[in-house]
Design a binder for these strands. Sequence first.
DNA 1: GTTATACATATCATCCTACAACCTGAATTG
DNA 2: CAATTCAGGTTGTAGGATGATATGTATAAC
Lengths: 247, 247
Amino acid sequence: MKQRLAAIGTVEALPHRVAAFLSREIESGDLNPGSLLPTEQQLSEKFGVSRNVVREAIAQLRADGMVEARQGIGSFVLAPEQRAAIRIDRETLKEGQNMERLFELRCILEAESAALAAERREQEHLDAIKGALDRMSGEERWEDGSIDADLLFHREIARATGNSYIHTFISFVCEQIRRSIYYARQTNPLHDLVEVNVGEHVRIYEALVAGDPAAAEAAMRAHIIGAANRVGVKLPSARGERTGGGK
Amino acid sequence: MKQRLAAIGTVEALPHRVAAFLSREIESGDLNPGSLLPTEQQLSEKFGVSRNVVREAIAQLRADGMVEARQGIGSFVLAPEQRAAIRIDRETLKEGQNMERLFELRCILEAESAALAAERREQEHLDAIKGALDRMSGEERWEDGSIDADLLFHREIARATGNSYIHTFISFVCEQIRRSIYYARQTNPLHDLVEVNVGEHVRIYEALVAGDPAAAEAAMRAHIIGAANRVGVKLPSARGERTGGGK
DNA sequence: GTTATACATATCATCCTACAACCTGAATTG
DNA sequence: CAATTCAGGTTGTAGGATGATATGTATAAC
């Protein structure tokens, strides 16, 4: 029986579609951990693709630690706790794109990170952050450029925490927001969504220079709430004021 | 020129070795973001492997969001902030400080989430959290069961925030830590790493029931610092005390 | 009857060639 | 000069061939 691979939305390459299909079958429990995948031959017949495509698909699953291939036997489905790696991809976050919640998550991550960065920043980090700040307020203030500088500013602060995971997560969330904004601007180009408030950034930078964690956290929280408001997202500020305003 | 691919330790499949090589070249900056990878033909000659192997290697890099292949042109190296996925594998965590950094990230996420959950939790959430708590302290307290219940407890709190992004991220981090512990126990089974402190969990639960955000945040922060210590990770507690102890 | 060896089979791993789909830039043509 | 066509390069897919490895079976030896 030849299975039909649905191409939802964008046209993806065949290996990706096969991998997604198998991945869903594993996640949904149709393929129990410990069981064997069908052979590459069977899969290639089932999906009507070449064995090459099947192999690339399985390579993806293996990279994600979902299966383990053993030469001469087959590919075993691994239990979640046996997997060597886990991942979050954009597609996971696409579902229920909710700007308000995304900003909320960003606020949590960045506010605390700003405090950490204030404690740990070296001169090198301050220079990099200042560089981004200058680009933001400088002449090259055309739309996309200032957004890039804005994101760079935040990424550099995340980097100053010395924690690469924080850097990765914040970069990921910021990029997600940037894409959402970009998309919103295409559907509603009249609304100028790219306004960047330089003053708020300056206050964050000064707190970092001063090495004042509480001030950095408060400034960052105020900035993100402000940024959310500027793109039309009302962030419940109760938590922001409670935690950031105190001290 | 034919490149020699080192097989360090275990014998890995060729695609994995090629992928690891390219991955290192990208991470180290030898291949700048935006630049093109050598063609599959060139790579296959360089490494002395077939184009098929090269393709599987690139498929892995693509799944990790490190490169983007465009038919008719080539494969572009993506900047970290452009990557479509966050991926953490166990090998990374074996390197010294990474576990500490992961706990630090977890602390940031979960502490604030606990505060949010204290404000927003419905009765349904409290019931689910209580259920996990009971499983943790109940008779079915064999090792893995109590770890599962522990993670469930944290996921349910994340769910009570009503923010699916927070839920996704916390699940991700918790799962990663769980696997590291699982792995560590295999290599050193004598050391009992699965000790779960029920008292700390009870205090968090009580703060949630009381609807007290500050108390929930403090209790969560104390718990995660404690959990880190119990697996031998010393978390810099300065931030923890500063933010969590106050009020 | 039990054990040990050899063999056939199944499966993944790798290689090879060929062609299709697609992009780019240069040559051709109007 | 502009538009079209064409040629070359690159990734995507197909299909077959061979090597490496695990498994079960049949045969032979004890």
